[in-house]
């Protein structure tokens, strides 16, 4: 996404002698035209339609008219705030879980895997060879009652822990918030691993040797050298995981219960089944704004502004 856009950003410095200034001033704008056109057609226009649709009233059969019905935003927030909160919460937990699993994995692939590196990278992407739906359905079998995973969780009393955390409500795993978060983590893990790998792979080993020469323990070297240098990967990975996870609904439909409904599922119902397009547009717009606000704050805080 925008992270990719920044790659070409620093290349503008040339050493040509100053020729006609006006011409030179216009060139960057011409170069921007294809990008702008793309943004206009595939982002701005749909966004305006969505915004406009959300403020219309009427019915699907008789047509809808723009009536600047702003009250729908307030009503939607009041009626569906738990769904938004849940979506953000689940996505955040899944992102943290993916980071905890993905970081060691990416580190191992980048630095410890030797000649297995390429094979391991292919394995990270391998799940994409089958459909998202099939992969999620497989989790129904994995977490099914009477299966080995549930047995293991019960033997180790992890089920009690999950119950205490309110992530499950019985001695089972399927059809619980835990299952939804696990599904999200699994489905978006590659989006975490690949950017992490890209930034860890570039890490200069000599920096770690230098840290060692200066009597830093391995952990200190990790904390003060490896981690800061991999921060762009962490930020890109968390964004690529969090954003799609917050809007996902397949996982909550297939792995959740009636009290783990995420906002994507509600939008799907309004759009597809009730055919209430203004309501669906409003919900999508609110989700967009919430995610944008979170992402902006996060990126500002993490100090890697070149990502946006």
């Amino acid at each position: 996404m925008s992270a990719i856009g920044s790659l070409g950003g620093a290349g503008g410095r040339t050493k040509t002698a100053p020729d006609r200034p006006e011409k030179r001033r216009l060139t960057p704008y011409w170069l921007l035209v294809p990008g702008m056109a793309w943004l206009l057609i595939f982002f701005v226009v749909p966004m305006v339609f969505l915004g406009s649709q959300s403020l219309q009233t009427g019915s699907f059969e008789d047509g809808t008219k723009l009536t600047w019905n702003f009250s729908i935003y307030w009503e939607t927030l009041r009626g569906y705030w738990p769904h938004y909160a849940r979506s953000i919460g689940f996505a955040a937990l899944a992102t943290i879980a993916a980071l905890l699993i993905g970081y060691p994995l990416a580190y191992m692939i980048a630095h410890k895997s030797g000649r297995w590196k390429n094979i391991l990278l292919v394995l990270v992407i391998a799940p994409f060879f089958t459909s998202f739906l099939i992969r999620t359905l497989a989790w129904k079998t994995i977490l099914s009652s009477g299966g080995p995973v549930v047995w293991f969780f019960q033997q180790t009393h992890l089920t009690d822990l999950l119950q205490w955390l309110h992530l499950t409500d019985k001695d089972t795993l399927l059809a619980t918030p835990f299952a939804v978060i696990a599904g999200l983590t699994y489905n978006f893990l590659p989006f975490m691993v690949l950017p992490l790998y890209a930034s860890l792979d570039r890490l200069d080993h000599r920096l770690l040797e230098a840290a060692g020469d200066l009597y830093s323990r391995p952990f200190t070297a990790f904390r003060r050298v490896t981690l800061p240098l991999s921060m762009p990967g962490v930020v890109a990975g968390t964004l690529l995981t969090f954003i799609p996870a917050a809007g996902d609904y397949i996982n909550s439909v297939l792995l959740g219960n009636t009290r783990s409904t995420m906002i994507g599922q509600v939008i799907d119902g309004q759009f597809l089944r009730v055919l209430d397009y203004p309501q669906a547009a409003t919900m999508s717009f609110i989700l967009l704004i919430i995610i944008l606000a979170i992402v902006m704050t996060y990126v500002r805080r993490s100090g890697t502004e070149e990502l946006v």
């Binding site: 966004m47 339609f49 406009s52 047509g63």
Partner: peptide, 19 residues
């Protein structure tokens, strides 16, 4: 600028015709 161009699109998106 982008928003300006967008509002032009907005004019055309004021209503959705019925069936």
């Amino acid at each position: 600028g982008v928003l300006g161009l967008g509002s032009a699109a907005a004019l055309s998106a004021c209503s959705t015709p019925g069936l």
